[in-house]
Amino acid sequence: MPTPVASRALALLMSATLLVSGCSAPTDPTPDPSQPQPSTAWQIPDGSTAHELRVGDLDRTYRTYRPKNLSETRPAPLVLVLHGGAGSGRQAENSYGWDAQADTGGFLVAYPDGVGRSWNVGPGCCGPAARDDVDDVAFVKSVIAAVSQGAPLDPARVYVTGISNGGMLAYRLACDTTLFAAAAPVSGTLIGDCPRPAPLSILHIHGTADRSVPFDGSPGKRHNGGTGRIPLNLDGPAVPDLIASWRATDNCPAPTSTASTPPPAKGGDTGEESAKEVVTRLTADCPGSRTVELITIAGAGHQWPGAPGPSQAAIDLLDLDPPSTALAATPTIWQFFANH
Rank of each mutant, 00 (worst) to 15 (best):
A110F: 00
S88Y: 07
I163Q: 06
A174M: 10
T258W: 13
A86K: 00
N251H: 11
V115K: 11
K141I: 10
L70R: 04
G299W: 05
T330R: 12
Q37S: 10
T73M: 07
P219G: 13
R74V: 07
I295G: 05
L13M: 11
Q37F: 03
T104W: 13
G106V: 13
A50K: 10
L108F: 04
T40L: 01
D193K: 15
W98C: 04
A86I: 01
T330W: 11
V278L: 02
G217E: 13
V239I: 15
G84N: 12
A25W: 00
L18V: 15
A244P: 09
W304A: 05
W334K: 02
S24C: 11
G85F: 00
R290K: 15
W304H: 06
T261M: 09
A298K: 00
G114R: 09
N233D: 09
G166V: 05
L12D: 13
A259C: 11
W246G: 06
S88V: 00
S88H: 06
A182N: 03
S142Y: 14
T189A: 07
L232G: 03
T332F: 12
L19D: 13
L19W: 15
W42V: 01
G306P: 09
T30A: 07
G162L: 08
G220E: 01
L12I: 14
D154A: 05
K141E: 14
I144T: 07
P2S: 11
G84C: 12
D46A: 03
G301R: 06
P199G: 05
I295S: 03
G299A: 06
N339D: 12
S201W: 08
N94S: 07
N224D: 11
G228F: 09
T49N: 14
T64S: 00
G188L: 06
A326H: 03
G192K: 00
S212Y: 05
D285N: 12
S142D: 14
T261E: 11
L317E: 06
R157A: 06
D210H: 05
L58W: 03
F139A: 10
D135F: 15
T61L: 07
S260V: 06
F107P: 10
K141W: 10
G271F: 03
A92E: 02
L18E: 14
D269I: 00
V239L: 12
G106L: 12
G268W: 01
P33K: 08
W98E: 09
G207T: 15
G299E: 04
T189G: 04
M168S: 07
Y62K: 02
V79P: 02
L58S: 01
A259I: 09
K221A: 01
F180C: 13
G97L: 04
K221H: 07
V20L: 10
S212M: 14
L18H: 14
I295W: 07
R290S: 13
P33S: 08
T61H: 10
P262I: 01
G228R: 05
K266D: 09
T161I: 04
A174T: 14
D269G: 11
M14E: 14
P214Q: 10
R247T: 14
V20D: 12
G309H: 00
D59W: 12
A102Y: 08
F139P: 14
L179A: 09
V143R: 13
T296A: 01
G97D: 01
H204Q: 08
T61A: 06
V158Y: 12
G56E: 10
D216I: 05
D316V: 11
E277T: 12
V213E: 04
G225H: 02
I333C: 09
